[in-house]
Structures are given as structure tokens and as C-alpha cells.
Deep mutational scan, measured.
Amino acid sequence: RRPMNAFMVWAKDERKRLAQQNPDLHNAELSKMLGKSWKALTLAEKRPFVEEAERLRVQHMQDHPNYK
């Protein structure tokens, strides 16, 4: 499986939080909310998630050198 990108790293915990706050929302609505929230973040706010995604990408390359 591919490593998570920055959005997916961020959305993993954010989706849980949103789902707890909005138990009646379907996954499609949660995804739309997550997309809008991600776009609203500044580059500085996204940076930790971008860095974690890069760390995961490098780790994935080391763990699976033949993955394409």
C-alpha cells in the first residue's frame, strides 16, 4: 500500500474528531468538510503533516525498495 500523503496524515485524526462531533454525517459529507478545512490551512499549519508524509515516503522506500 502507498504511504499516506500530507492530507491523509492530517485527515486520519481530524476525521475521527469530526465524526465524533457530527455522528449523523455520512462519510461523503465528512470528506467534503475535511477538504475545505485542509484548503483553509496555511502552509505553516500544513508543514508538520507534509514533513510526516515525507518521512513515511522515505520509510516506505526503505521498506519496499521494489515498490513502483
Rank of each mutant, 00 (worst) to 15 (best):
E45D: 12
D24Y: 09
H26I: 14
A44L: 08
S31V: 09
P3H: 12
H64K: 14
K39G: 10
N27C: 03
Q62C: 06
V58R: 10
N5Y: 01
N5E: 04
W10C: 01
A19Q: 14
K32T: 08
R15V: 05
Q20W: 06
R47Y: 09
V58I: 14
R1K: 15
K36R: 11
H26A: 13
Q59L: 12
K68V: 08
M4F: 07
H64L: 13
Q21H: 10
F7P: 01
A40Q: 11
L25G: 05
R15F: 05
M8E: 15
N66T: 11
E52H: 03
H26M: 14
E14D: 01
R47I: 01
S31K: 12
S31D: 06
P65N: 11
L18E: 00
E45L: 04
L43D: 15
D24I: 06
G35L: 11
G35C: 13
R15I: 07
L30V: 11
R1Y: 02
D24T: 13
R55C: 02
R17V: 06
R2S: 10
E14S: 02
E54D: 09
N5P: 01
M4S: 07
V58G: 15
D63Q: 12
E14N: 08
S37W: 02
R47M: 10
A53P: 02
R57H: 05
F7W: 01
L56I: 08
W38R: 00
K32R: 08
N27Q: 12
R17S: 06
L56S: 05
K46A: 00
A44I: 09
L56H: 08
P23S: 06
N27T: 07
A53L: 02
A28E: 14
V9E: 02
R55A: 06
L34V: 04
H64Q: 13
A40L: 10
E54L: 06
V50D: 08
W10T: 03
N22F: 09
Q59W: 03
A53W: 01
G35Q: 15
A40C: 07
V50P: 00
R57I: 04
R17A: 05
S31C: 08
K36G: 08
Q21T: 05
L25M: 06
E14R: 01
M61Q: 15
V50E: 15
N5H: 03
K39A: 13
M33A: 10
D24H: 10
H26L: 12
L18S: 01
E14W: 00
N66M: 11
N22D: 06
Q21P: 01
D13C: 03
L56M: 11
L30D: 05
A6N: 00
F49Y: 14
M61F: 09
D63W: 06
E29I: 07
D63I: 05
P23L: 03
D13W: 01
E45M: 13
L41R: 01
Q20G: 10
P23Q: 07
A6P: 09
R57N: 15
N5G: 08
Q59T: 14
H64A: 14
V9Y: 03
R2L: 07
P48A: 02
P65E: 14
W38A: 09
T42R: 03
A6G: 07
R47G: 04
L56F: 06
K32A: 12
F49S: 03
D13G: 09
A28D: 10
A53K: 03
E52G: 03
D13L: 08
